[in-house]
Design a protein around this nucleic acid. Sequence first.
DNA 1: AATGTGACTGGTA
DNA 2: GTACCAGCCACAT
Length: 113
Amino acid sequence: MGQSFNHQVYDIVRRIPAGCVATYGQVAALAGKPRNARMVGYALHANPEPGVIPCHRVVFRDGSLAPGFAFGGPDRQRALLESEGVVFTGARAQGNAGAEGLRVDLSRCQWRA
DNA sequence: AATGTGACTGGTA
DNA sequence: GTACCAGCCACAT
């Protein structure tokens, strides 16, 4: 049942509390596949229940956001997270989303199961 | 069945 | 500090 992983991802992301974020690798690990961080992103892209699954609370390991596939823009994602009380830092990240220039302060807002 | 791609990550330049 | 590259695993064509 390969769908289990997918379903697990949704279930895990769904229980991330507001004001906190989780990394793709973290969700993947909780789902039982620590190497499938990429698959997590893929699963969230499928997002069967938008509005129910807070995929905006899932970020890169460095705290940076997706380059441009999210909800209508990483700016939208950042606004949403800030609205929930997530703290951002004004530093740039790796070549992934440096254009956006902001990273979540994982030290303070990363979710713990 | 094989090749290419990717909402990732860690390591290196 | 940032930028780029290679490795990884599952899905799409």
